[in-house]
């Protein structure tokens, strides 16, 4: 299998090769990997990659996946434009 052609995070174009490389360097949390290669920082915020990365960490570090934390989630879910935020604040003013 060519790990460079296995896409883990679509949004930020992160491959399995990159993820495995970081885990082997000792970055064994989803949050650290996210900060180093931006996996999960794109528009989908880790919906497709989070679980795959957690599984890779579990496998390579020989840890049970139950012990691996998934990435944090932050508002605003799905994104919102500045214009939309402002429009809501001024409706009844």
């Amino acid at each position: 299998m060519d790990e460079n052609k296995v896409i883990i995070c679509r949004c930020e174009d992160v491959t399995l090769a990159e993820i495995r490389n970081l885990i082997k360097q000792g970055f064994t949390t989803v949050e650290e990997i996210k900060r180093l290669v931006r996996s999960g920082m794109g528009p989908c915020q880790g919906k497709t990659c989070g679980l795959l990365i957690a599984r890779e960490i579990a496998e390579i570090t020989n840890t049970s996946i139950e012990k691996i934390e998934i990435q944090n989630m932050r508002p605003p879910y799905g994104g919102v434009t500045f214009e939309e935020v402002i429009a809501g604040d001024t409706i009844e003013e």
Binding site: R10, C11, G42, P43, C44, K47, T48, G78
Partner: peptide, 8 residues
Amino acid sequence: FCAVGHCS
């Protein structure tokens, strides 16, 4: 891919 607005 997902057709429900989840992936990018």
